[in-house]
């Protein structure tokens, strides 16, 4: 009867069996809500993001929050040790989380984290990449597509310029980084499936 919510933002991957699903979900909510609020705070630091309508900001944040968090918390996935460190500091071997049914999603998360960390980005480059990730999220329901397109172009150009300026001899880093965007989309879909499979009775 134990409830499994093996998200690194949760305090523990498995909850005691005497807790109701609603209690487990409420406890998890206390863990992920601050992270979501941090993404909203981050969005306010993105040049031009505030010029979008509030509804469009909300739509992009709804679509892109998981992907931004995935980039932000990449370091929780230790590819060498094959461990995941939860935000409460506890570290779990991949094998034990896999046994909880988190295999495919975690494998994809490890793969993404490894590829991103191999690029050796500076923190300001990661921030700019997260901004690109957010404005590249699914645009269902966006009212001013042209404004989002323009913002996306501006941010991608800024990112490219920064990388070219800092690494004039590494022409591959920018295309390699952009290739991580479809990876994040795939991760987002896998993550959504997991979320939908956790139902509150």
């Amino acid at each position: 009867g134990a409830k499994v919510l093996a998200c690194p933002l949760n305090s523990c991957p498995v909850s005691p069996s005497d807790r109701s699903t609603q209690q487990v979900w409420d406890a998890f909510s206390q863990c992920f809500s601050p992270a979501v609020r941090d993404v909203v705070e981050f969005s306010r630091s993105i040049p031009g993001f505030h010029t979008l309508s509030q509804d469009d900001q909300i739509r992009l944040l709804k679509s892109g929050t998981f992907q931004v968090l995935m980039v932000r918390f990449c370091s929780l996935f230790d590819a060498k040790q094959r461990t995941v460190t939860f935000l409460n500091g506890q570290t779990y071997p991949l094998a034990s989380l896999r046994a909880l049914g988190m295999g495919a999603l975690l494998d994809a998360m490890f793969d993404f984290s490894e590829k991103l960390s191999m690029l050796g980005l500076e923190s300001d480059e990661v921030s700019l990449f997260m901004a690109v990730v957010l404005v590249s999220a699914d645009r269902s329901g966006i009212s001013n597509m042209a404004a989002v397109d323009k913002l996306q172009d501006d941010l991608i150009n800024t990112l490219r310029s920064l990388l070219v300026q800092r690494r004039p001899n590494d022409a591959e880093i920018f295309p390699k980084l952009l290739l991580r965007l479809p990876d994040l989309r795939t991760l987002n879909s896998l993550h959504s499936e997991k979320l939908l499979s956790f139902r509150i009775d």
């Binding site: 909510s29 992920f32 809500s33 979501v36 609020r37 909203v40 705070e41 306010r44 509030q54 900001q57 909300i58 944040l61 709804k62 679509s63 929050t65 993550h191 959504s192 979320l195 939908l196 956790f198 139902r199």
Partner: peptide
């Protein structure tokens, strides 16, 4: 729940965070 974002109550958290930031801005 048919939508993961709804499942998480994501819109509510985002909306409150965005609105809160507006409310806290000085006139």
């Amino acid at each position: 729940f048919s939508d993961p974002a709804s499942n998480l109550g994501l819109e509510d958290i985002i909306r409150k965070a965005l609105m809160g930031s507006v409310d806290e801005r000085p006139e």
